[in-house]
Design a protein around this nucleic acid. Structure first.
Lengths: 216, 216
DNA sequence: CAATGGTGGTTGACAGTGTCAACTGATTGC
DNA sequence: GCAATCAGTTGACACTGTCAACCACCATTG
């Protein structure tokens, strides 16, 4: 009688799983992601996803991998002009914008609940790509000043820039910032201000824009 | 025959649970923390901890609360001298040092898997305290320069400093930094360099220490 | 064409989890 | 002395990930 529900999703069950997993994560958080729930929603047996993902973490790792890839792409987004300083700032904005436009992905990438990268070597490829984008932007920046810093210097500055941006976004997203009783405008300006400060530390003087406190 | 194991822990079962939970978390990560495992290790029934904690998250929230309290204490640690700039830098070091000395607690606080602060109002008290410590340090810093910035400015700068430090530590801890192929010395100097850069952005010129790149 | 094997799906178990409910033994206040 | 409360117990229930065995189909070969 072949009653058995007609082998639902076809060959794209893998994609369906990934899509549904994203829905779950965005609704209930990553820790609520369960393979059984994914299967249930798709209308397929609880074991079916295991044909496509060796474990829950493998499913999650694939989602994270794509998130990193998107992230790297977003950083590559602003086409380079002939002003490396402006480009660097644009990349900073792109970073923050991505974090706000795709909070889900961002949280996935930097939220700390990643599957162990050792078990999922490809997962972090996008992270490496993104870091290269940042490195290159800094190299252009230095080179426009007639400097040719060595790799250590570049890596140091890149790490600093990245970590500052990450810290900014991270504090924004953490509930920590919600529980601090901040002056309202401070919270609003926070991102722009932090970007400006990072620029300052890297020796970019935000063109035309006078720093609003007189010192230095 | 009163065989029932002699009501083990006494009134400090609560403390025993917290201690054992810390062991579990440090060995296997926070997501492996389970009330049943805690109970099992202490040698008590799987339901006993519920006398002291309404749920697994309440147990976790108490651990997090103490971690934040310790953190605030660590930031208060360096006694203020008469050099606010040096004090601010010392606080930066204290921040990073805490993160390295107590990676477990730090990960708990900023790892992103916190119980919802709305359900655990006291949990973040230490975070607010720590932020106040930072605010005060900056106020002293400005005031030593003869400035009296308003609260928005202070909050902005405090957020920037905090987020940068957090970003630094966060990248250090994330496996992300492990998967980037960095110049080795860049990784080693990273923290010191970032602290210096944050100081630069805040207008602190690290005394006697010439910035190693010539510009401005 | 028939046998074969892989591929994608199924059901059924098992151990582990959080948590509700009902119970028991001791301690304590009246 | 006795009721109440506290601290811990056992026993369930629903949920999870994952292993194992099974089944249906499709494409391949012989």
């Amino acid at each position: 009688m072949m009653a058995r529900a007609e082998h639902k999703a076809g060959p794209d069950l893998r994609e369906a799983c990934l899509a549904e997993a994203l829905v779950i994560i965005s609704n209930a958080g990553v820790e609520k992601l369960s393979i059984r729930e994914v299967a249930r929603r798709i209308g397929v047996s609880h074991q079916a996803p295991y044909r496509h993902f060796a474990s829950r973490n493998h499913l999650l790792a694939e989602i994270v991998r794509r998130a990193f890839a998107d992230f790297a792409q977003a950083l590559r987004g602003p086409a380079p002009t002939d002003d490396p300083a402006a480009d660097a700032l644009a990349m900073g904005f792109a970073y923050v914008q991505f974090a706000f436009a795709e909070p889900l992905k961002y949280r996935l990438m930097f939220g700390g609940t990643l599957p162990d990268p050792v078990d999922h070597p490809d997962m972090m490829q996008g992270a490496r790509d993104a870091f290269d984008v940042l490195r290159n932007s800094l190299i252009r920046l230095y080179s426009a000043r007639g400097q040719q810093p060595d790799r250590e210097t570049i890596d140091r500055e890149a790490l600093f820039a990245w970590s500052s941006l990450h810290g900014v976004v991270s504090l924004m997203r953490t509930d920590a910032i919600g529980t601090l009783d901040l002056a309202p405008s401070a919270r609003a300006d926070f991102v722009a201000h932090a970007l400006r400060q990072v620029g300052t530390a890297l020796g970019i003087n935000t063109s035309g824009q006078e720093p609003h406190r007189g010192s230095s």
